[in-house]
Design a binder for these strands. Structure first.
Length: 852
RNA sequence: GCCGAAGUGGCGAAAUGGCAGACGCAUCCGACUUAAAAUCGGCCGGUCGAUGAGAUCAUGCGGGUUCGAGUCCCGCCUUCGGCACCA
C-alpha cells in the first residue's frame, strides 16, 4: 500500500477542489466585463433559485450542465455573462418565521449565505458581482417603480372579482397558479376556493395576441403549445338577442352572447345564462323566481370542482323569460345553467343543440327543440337525416341549411356570410375572445414587495410618489397567517397622509406576487446597483435578449409567460428595446427520488449533494449528473454509477500525471498495438483526440452532455493502451492529453485545471509564472479533419438487408472495386445461394447491400 | 375527451433511414496481492450450436413504405406531463 502511494499520488478531489475554487476567485475568472466589445457576447441565464436553505441534487442537475455551457463558451472565445441571484421573497421564509419566531429576512439571509457556499463547492462559474436579491430594497424599489408606471398606463388596475384563494397558504392566486381539474395550489397542492375580493391585476390580456407569436424564438415546441393553449384565442362573433316583452316585464334589454359558430344562428332554440349573469334577476318571471333562486343558491354552494366536472349531468332552470333571435325573430326560452361560465365570453350563450354536444345534452334532458342548420354536403337535401349533434365544420363540405340568409353556403363561407349579416343588421359583430385572464398580483402576506399605493377616502388609490420609493417592509409585524395581510398590524407604517390631498390615508397592505420579482431580473443583473432606473438601457441593448435560458418546464404558463409579458410592457414604457426576453430556451427534465416520486423531505427520498461531494468530489457528481441520460429527460435518482465517474477521473489523472507508467496486469502494456509502427501509433492517438473533441463540441452545443462525456471516455480508453509505450510523452501524445483536459474542463473543471497545471509544472511553468494559464483560459481545441481519415476502413456487407460479412477496404476504393470485393466474399456467395445479384446498393461508402 | 412527450439488455442509456445495444453501472473471469481493497485486462440481449465458426430471434403491439426501419407512415396498447362544459 505504501509503495503504491510512493509510485503515484492518488486523485484526491477533496484536496484539489477547494484550492481551485479559491484560485478562480483570485483570478477573477468569472467576472464579466460588460463593456468589453472585443469578443462576441453570450448571455447565459439559468432560472434563479429560491433560497430554501439547501441546495439539493435537483439544483445540481439544473445548474451543472448550464455551468458547462458557460465554461465551454468562454473557451470558444465568447465574452460570457453568467449571473445568478436569489428569488428571495416568498412564503417559505414567512412560514419559517412563524414557526421559529425569527424574522423572514434573517432566515433568508442565512440560507443565501449557505447556498452561496454550496454553489462555490459545486465549482459553479457564476459572476457574483452581478448578484441580484429580490428582498433587497435596492431591487424591489424598482418593482414598485415599474408598478407605478404600469398604473399610470392602465397596465396595473384594481377590481373586485371572484378570485382563487388557497386556504393553506392564506393568499389569493393568479389563475396560472391553480393547477389541473382538481384546482390545486401550485405551491402546496391544497385545493383552492373562491373569494370575492378587490385586488390588483396586471393587464396581460392586452398582450394576448402578441404573446401568441413566437417568431424568432428557439423555444421547445411543448412550451409554445402550452402557452398558446393557455392564451386560448378563439374567433367568433358577439350577437345581441333581445329580451321579449312579458306580462311582468317590458323587455327590450340586449342579451349579448359570444359564439364561435354564428353560422348556426338559425339553430339557436334557447339561451343559457350563467347563474351569476346580471340580467337573471330582472328577467325572471314570478312563476319561476322560486326555482331560479334555489338553483342560484345551489350553485353557490357547489365547489368549483363540482361545477367544472364534465362528467356530471347537466342541470338548469328556465327563467320563464324569452328572447328574440335576431336572424329570424323567433322567441326562444332563456334558461340558467351552471355549465355556462360567468367569466368567459359574455357569460351567456345561444344554445344550438343540433351542433354542440353540451347544448344537445341539455336540450335532450329538458325536452327543448333541436333544429339542424348544418349538414354534410351529401345530406343537405335531407337535413333531418343528419346524425346529431353534428359538430364538424368540414372545410367546404359542411353546408348551411334551414338558414334563409346564408342557405347553401359551405364552411367557412357560411361563417363569413353570417358575420356579414350580423354586421349589416347591427345585431352583432366579429369578436375574438381569449381564455387568458389578467394576472392577479395581490398577495395577503408579508414577505414580498409592498404595493406602492396609498388609499385615500377622497382620492381613492394614489401611487406613492417615486421619490419616496422604496416603500420598505416594517419590522413590527405580526406574521401569523390569518388570511388578512400581516402589514395591517403595522399601525405606525400603515397610516400616512394621502400624497395628493394630504388627508388621512392608509397604505396598501397586500404585497406583490413573487412572480413579479422574477419577471425582469435578468435585465437587472446587467446593472444591479443602478440608481437611475430599473435597468441600464445601454447594457440591455448590448446584451439582450438573453442568448440561452435554461430551467424547468413547470414554469411554462407562469414565469415564462409573465416574463414575456413584462418584456413587452417594459418595451412599451420605453425602458428596453426588445420584445422577447429569451432567444433560446431549454427545459431540462426533473430529477426524481429513487422511488420515482418527486423529491421531498416528507417522502424522505431527498438526495443530499454535500454528502456525495464529500465522498466522491464535485467533479464526479457534476459528471455523473450529465452522464446519466439526456438532460431534457430527467429521471429517478440512483447513485450507483457514480463510481464510474470517479474511475474515469482517476484514469485522466493517471494519463496526465504518469504517462510512462506500465500496467502490470495488462499484457499489452508498454508496447505498440500489433501491426502498428511508431508513426501509426502517434497518428492513432491524434486521430482519437481530434475525433473526440469534434464530437464533444457538437454534443455540448446540442445539450447532449451524456454523449459528450461518453466521447471523452472513449478518448481516455483509446489513449490508455499507449501509456508506458513509445508513443507516451511524444508531441502527439501531449497534444492528445491537452485535448482530453480541455474537453473535460467544462464538465470537471477542477480536475482539468489541476492536471493542466501539473503538465505546465512539468514543463517548468509554475503558477506564479506569467506564462501560466488556467485550462479555462485556453482556447477550445480545434479539430483538424485531415487527421480523421484512415487508410483503410471496415465495410459491412449485407445480402438482402442482412449483415453477412465485413470487408477491409482502402479508403480510396471505388464503388466498382468494392462491389467486386463484396461479390468475391465466400460468405456473400453462400448467402446468395448461387443467385445472381440483381442490384448492389452503396450507402455512401458506409455499407453495401447486395440484392439477389 | 383533447394536446404533447416517451416505451431499446439485469440497470442508466447510444444509434444523419445503413453493422442495434456506443459509453457507463452491476455480475462474472483473469492479472497484481499472503489476502482483500484499489488498479489493469477481459466476458457480458435471448435461443440453437458441446465450445467454436455460425445460424436465428430481438428496439411496447399489429400492419405498411423501402434494397434496408429503433428511426418514416397508418392503427392500437402502456406510462408520464399539460388542458378540460372556454360556447
Amino acid at each position: 500500500m505504501a509503495e503504491q502511494d510512493e509510485r503515484l499520488e492518488r486523485y484526491n478531489p477533496t484536496e484539489i477542489e477547494p484550492r481551485w475554487q479559491r484560485r478562480w476567485e483570485e483570478l477573477g475568472l468569472h467576472t464579466t466585463d460588460l463593456t468589453d466589445t472585443s469578443k462576441p457576447h453570450y448571455y447565459l441565464l439559468t432560472m434563479w433559485p429560491y433560497p430554501s436553505g439547501d441546495l439539493h441534487i435537483g439544483h445540481w442537475y439544473v445548474k451543472t450542465p448550464t455551468d458547462a455551457i458557460a465554461r465551454y463558451k468562454r473557451m470558444q472565445g465568447f465574452n460570457v455573462f453568467y449571473p445568478v441571484g436569489f428569488d428571495a421573497f416568498g412564503l417559505p421564509a414567512e412560514n419559517a418565521a412563524i414557526k421559529r419566531k425569527i424574522h423572514p429576512r434573517e432566515w433568508t439571509v442565512a440560507n443565501m449565505e449557505k447556498m452561496r457556499l454550496q454553489f462555490r463547492m459545486m465549482g459553479a462559474s457564476f459572476d457574483w458581482n452581478a448578484e441580484v436579491v429580490t428582498c433587497d430594497p435596492i431591487y424591489f424599489r424598482w418593482n414598485q417603480w415599474i408598478f407605478l408606471k404600469f398604473y399610470e398606463k392602465g397596465v396595473a388596475y384594481r377590481k373586485q372579482a371572484p378570485v382563487d384563494w388557497c386556504p393553506s397558504c392564506q393568499v389569493t392566486l393568479a389563475r396560472e397558479q391553480v393547477e389541473g381539474v382538481d384546482r390545486i395550489c401550485w405551491r402546496c397542492s391544497t385545493q383552492v376556493t373562491k373569494r370575492d375580493l378587490t385586488q390588483w391585476f396586471f393587464k396581460i390580456t392586452d398582450y394576448a395576441d402578441e404573446l401568441l407569436s413566437f417568431e424568432g424564438l428557439s423555444w421547445p415546441e411543448p412550451i409554445r403549445t402550452m402557452q398558446t393553449n393557455w392564451i386560448g384565442r378563439s374567433e367568433g362573433a358577439e350577437v345581441d338577442f333581445t329580451v321579449a316583452p312579458a306580462a311582468h316585464h317590458a323587455g327590450g334589454e340586449k342579451l349579448r352572447v359570444f359564439t364561435t359558430r354564428p353560422d348556426t344562428l338559425y339553430g339557436a332554440t334557447f339561451m343559457v345564462l350563467a347563474p351569476e349573469h346580471d340580467l337573471v334577476d330582472t328577467i325572471t318571471t314570478p312563476e319561476q323566481r322560486a326555482a331560479v333562486t334555489i338553483y342560484i343558491e345551489a350553485t353557490k354552494r357547489k365547489t368549483e370542482i363540482d361545477r367544472l366536472t364534465t362528467k356530471k349531468e347537466k342541470s338548469g332552470v328556465a327563467t320563464g323569460a324569452f328572447a328574440i333571435n335576431p336572424v329570424n325573430g323567433e322567441k326562444v326560452p332563456v334558461w340558467i345553467a351552471d355549465y355556462v361560465l360567468a367569466g368567459y365570453g359574455t357569460g351567456a350563450i345561444m344554445a344550438v343543440p343540433a351542433h354542440d354536444e353540451r347544448d344537445y345534452e341539455f336540450a335532450q334532458q329538458f325536452g327543448l327543440p333541436i333544429i339542424p342548420v348544418v349538414a354534410p354536403a351529401n345530406l343537405a337535401a335531407t337535413p333531418n337525416d343528419v346524425p346529431l349533434p353534428y359538430v364538424e365544420k368540414a372545410d367546404g363540405a359542411a353546408v348551411a341549411v334551414n338558414s334563409p340568409a346564408w342557405n347553401g353556403a359551405a364552411w367557412p363561407a357560411s361563417l363569413t356570410k353570417a358575420i356579414a349579416h350580423l354586421t349589416s343588421t347591427k345585431t352583432g359583430e366579429k369578436k375574438v375572445t381569449y381564455r387568458l385572464r389578467d394576472w392577479l398580483i395581490s398577495r395577503q402576506r408579508y414577505w414580498g414587495t409592498p404595493i406602492p399605493i396609498i388609499h385615500c377616502a377622497t382620492c381613492g388609490p394614489v401611487g406613492v410618489p417615486v421619490e419616496q420609493l422604496p416603500v420598505t417592509l416594517p419590522d413590527d409585524v405580526d406574521f401569523k397567517a390569518t388570511g388578512e395581510s400581516p402589514l395591517k398590524t403595522a399601525t405606525a407604517w400603515l397610516n400616512v397622509p394621502c400624497p395628493k390631498c394630504g388627508g388621512p390615508g392608509q397604505r396598501e397592505t397586500d404585497t406583490m406576487d413573487t412572480f413579479v420579482d422574477s419577471s425582469w431580473y435578468w435585465y437587472r443583473y446587467l446593472a444591479p446597483k443602478n440608481e437611475l432606473g430599473p435597468v441600464d438601457r445601454k447594457l440591455v441593448d448590448a446584451w439582450c435578449p438573453v442568448d440561452q435560458y435554461t430551467g424547468g418546464a413547470e414554469h411554462a404558463v407562469m414565469h415564462l409567460l409573465y416574463s414575456r409579458f413584462f418584456t413587452k410592457a417594459m418595451r412599451d414604457l420605453g425602458l428596453i428595446g426588445e420584445s422577447e426576453p429569451f432567444t433560446r430556451l431549454f427545459n431540462q427534465g426533473q430529477i426524481l427520488g429513487a422511488d420515482g416520486e418527486r423529491m421531498s423531505k416528507s417522502r424522505g427520498n431527498v438526495q443530499d449533494p454535500d454528502e456525495l461531494v464529500n465522498r466522491h468530489g464535485a467533479d464526479a457528481v457534476r459528471l455523473f449528473l450529465m452522464f446519466m441520460g439526456p438532460w431534457d429527460q430527467g429521471g429517478a435518482w440512483s447513485s450507483s454509477g457514480i463510481s464510474g465517474m470517479v474511475r474515469f477521473l482517476g484514469r485522466i489523472w493517471t494519463l496526465a500525471l504518469d504517462p510512462h507508467g506500465k500496467e502490470p496486469g495488462d499484457p499489452n502494456s508498454g508496447v505498440l498495438p500489433e501491426g502498428q509502427d511508431q508513426a501509426a501509433g502517434e497518428a492513432a492517438v491524434r486521430r482519437a483526440a481530434h475525433k473526440a473533441l469534434g464530437g464533444v463540441g457538437t454534443d455540448i452545443e446540442a445539450f447532449r452532455f451524456n454523449t459528450a462525456v461518453a466521447k471523452l471516455m472513449e478518448l481516455a480508453n483509446a489513449l490508455f493502451p499507449y501509456r508506458g509505450g513509445p508513443v507516451a510523452g511524444t508531441a502527439a501524445w501531449n497534444e492528445a492529453i491537452h485535448y482530453l483536459l480541455a474537453g473535460i474542463a467544462p464538465m470537471a473543471p477542477h480536475l482539468a485545471d489541476e492536471m493542466h497545471s501539473r503538465v505546465q509544472a512539468a514543463a517548468g511553468i509554475s503558477t506564479s509564472d506569467p506564462r501560466w494559464t488556467s485550462i479555462h483560459q485556453c482556447a477550445w481545441p480545434t479539430v483538424d479533419t485531415s487527421l480523421l481519415t484512415e487508410s483503410t476502413r471496415e465495410l459491412p456487407v449485407q445480402v438482402n438487408g442482412k449483415l453477412r460479412d465485413k470487408l477491409t477496404v482502402s479508403a480510396t476504393a471505388t464503388e466498382a472495386e468494392i462491389e467486386a470485393l463484396a461479390l468475391a466474399s465466400p460468405k456473400v456467395q453462400l448467402a446468395l445461394e448461387g443467385r445472381a445479384p440483381k442490384k448492389v446498393i452503396h450507402a455512401g461508402g458506409r455499407l453495401v447491400n447486395i440484392v439477389g
